[in-house]
């Protein structure tokens, strides 16, 4: 376990160097969230009947999404790893006496958490202090808070599991940048990062709720806000677990297979 922790730590310290970038990120996220909030406020005033979430639920959703934005960007993969696969340096990684899957998993987790650690605190603080219709409200009860915590961890694990699949595909396709862009955009949309899933048409919602993308960020935020509670929340967490088993499990197997047939480009 120790090598993974040190990998985590290295990536963490590494990303902590970019403090200016983090401030820029905070400003951008904050402005973005605020503008979207204004749009939804107009919508809720105009047609309250069609507004499927309550206003506090929606604002909490939006602020959480802005705060943890960097955590759930599927397309922000580690370019060093992609380069390694493309130019053959991956051979050095394979030699290391630790499993490649968990090593890269830890690396990804480290850089994502460090990015978020810098960004989420100011956004969460300010949004908690904002006056009533604009601000982030606390979860309605203890269950929501605990549920959010668990579901958030599961969501992150699932997301990194998906991210690992991008690396695995790079083994086969060598360059995956184009596909990566397209998949990234779809993932953004399917995970409810552009508009919250409860605002989509019912038919679309049904499909999206089953797909793994919703299990990454939408589920924890909806649990926090109290939109999903009781059995619905438990079911959603169960689905998250199921997807983790499927995606991480298949990823580990596929990685093993990819490494068997890896040809180092141009040695």
């Amino acid at each position: 376990m120790r090598p993974f922790f040190s990998m985590l730590k290295i990536r963490f310290i590494n990303s902590m160097q970019y403090r200016a970038a983090a401030w820029a990120g905070v400003m951008t996220q904050f402005f973005w969230g605020f503008m979207e909030l204004l749009l939804y406020l107009t919508l809720s005033r105009e047609n309250p009947a069609a507004f499927t979430m309550t206003l506090p639920q929606l604002t909490s959703y939006l602020w959480l999404r802005q705060a943890f934005f960097a955590m759930f960007l599927l397309w922000s993969v580690d370019n060093d790893i992609l380069d390694m696969i493309m130019n053959g340096d991956v051979a050095y990684e394979v030699i290391r006496p630790v499993s490649l899957y968990s090593l890269w998993f830890a690396r990804n987790l480290g850089s994502r958490t460090s990015k978020v650690a810098l960004r989420c605190v100011p956004i969460l603080l300010v949004s908690l202090l904002l006056p009533k219709p604009y601000g982030l409200s606390l979860p309605p009860d203890v269950y929501s808070a605990v549920g959010f915590f668990i579901s958030m961890i599961l969501g992150v694990v699932l997301l990194i599991g998906m991210c690992m699949w991008i690396y695995i595909m790079t083994f086969y396709f060598i360059t995956a940048r184009g596909i990566q862009n397209i998949v990234g955009t779809f993932a953004d949309f399917l995970s409810g990062s552009l508009i919250p899933i409860p605002f989509m048409p019912i038919g679309v919602q049904r499909v999206l709720n089953i797909l793994p993308f919703a299990s990454t960020q939408s589920t924890p935020y909806l649990i926090y806000s109290g939109y999903l509670s009781g059995t619905a929340a438990l079911q959603a967490i169960g689905l998250q677990l199921l997807w983790i088993v499927l995606i991480v499990g298949s990823g580990i197997l596929a990685m093993r297979k990819a490494l068997l047939r890896v040809t180092v480009q141009g040695g």
Binding site: N181, F186, L194, F199, M200
Partner: peptide, 21 residues
């Protein structure tokens, strides 16, 4: 496709709310 996301969210919001302002 990347800019299609904006169009899609706009369409979905209108399917629910019909008018905006």
């Amino acid at each position: 496709i990347a800019s299609l996301g904006g169009l899609l969210s706009l369409t979905f919001l209108f399917m629910r709310f019909h008018t905006i302002a």
